[in-house]
Design a protein around this nucleic acid. Structure first.
Lengths: 180, 180
DNA sequence: GCTTGCTATGCAACGAGTTGCATAGCAAGG
DNA sequence: CCTTGCTATGCAACTCGTTGCATAGCAAGC
């Protein structure tokens, strides 16, 4: 599974605690790999046991110790090996597509409010991507390797959202036409 | 979960056995909702127990009975209720995006062969979508409700593949540039 | 004759991912 | 003062999804 590797990448970009990782997964990394804090803590434990991570304990008065994780050499090696493995075909889960085909057996107009809500959510995400691009990559001429790769992933996210918005508009036109 | 509903839609479009459903999930429905035959058999059993499906047993000499499933009224009702539920934010799993960001901590050039393989797979899928469009929707002026909804979903698949191909080309240009 | 592959269903075991809950102090706002 | 919310970690129980295997006859190709 790729969760280990997503965590490794995140820790290579910036060491942090399980809690911090969970919040990153709610924001930047979570754009292309979602995970709850439960999953993250469990996988962190396994990775630590496998020697993929280095841990630095920070004692905190009256709180549990904060564990700052960073990628260790075996983790880096595992990541390099994984990069060379064949990508397995992604398992697709497009709930909206199922719903649209389901609408043929009910009232197509019933789906319109949910498609509109969905469209709003994607429009907001696109705005956040574009704002993030302005903030994190103001000068596209002076990016290091890491930033260039982050930027090409972000461009993918932006194009995905644009495509999705155009398609949802297409869906709405179709649903309205069918509701005559 | 939406697997129940994906199965219901598939059975409403055309009744069939678990085996037939599994093959449909390898082809048309599987474009937006993947499932193995194991999952399908298990969920079919649960749906039958819940009265969502009607079953017709066909005795076959020297083979296990073939169970032909079709959607029953409670299934239709459940589907209609589900259509009106809020869509939960889709959980994203873009392994390629994780790998691209991972490439910053290894040799970016090492990723190129896998990206190219990935690109070929998506190009083939786009070709199959376009061929399927020609075959199943030759006359766009005379489609019934079901076909119009199937077609708008297919258009989404086509646009998704086009967007993905353009992005993978962008990724390849970026990786080549970083390998100087 | 033998292997390979297809139809057709299913069990068992495992791994991935989710949900609910628990702890516990600190800070902010009403 | 009291509630709400944040930091910070983790257990337990559950559901979802995957993998490997088993059965069993029939048809096609070598």
């Amino acid at each position: 599974m790729a969760l280990e590797y997503a965590i490794l990448v995140s820790l290579l970009e910036q060491p942090g605690s399980g809690y911090e990782l969970a919040r990153r997964f709610d924001r930047s990394i979570g754009r292309f790999w979602t995970a709850t804090h439960q999953q993250i803590y469990r996988v962190l434990g396994r990775m630590e046991a496998d020697g993929w991570l280095a841990v630095e304990l920070t004692a905190q008065s009256a709180r549990p110790d904060k564990k700052i994780y960073s990628a260790a050499e075996p983790g880096r090696t595992a990541l390099a090996a994984w990069l060379r493995e064949p990508v397995q075909p992604e398992s697709v889960r497009h709930e909206m597509a199922v719903r649209i085909r389901a609408a043929a057996f009910d009232d197509p107009a019933a789906l319109i409010p949910e498609v509109e809500r969905h469209r709003t959510a994607h429009a907001e995400l696109l705005d956040r991507y574009l704002a993030g691009e302005q903030r994190d990559f103001p000068d596209l001429e002076s990016l290091d390797v890491q930033q260039q790769l982050q930027h090409v992933v972000l461009r993918g996210g932006i194009e995905y959202e644009r495509m999705t918005l155009a398609w949802l508009d297409d869906v709405l036109v179709t649903l309205h036409k069918l509701s005559h």
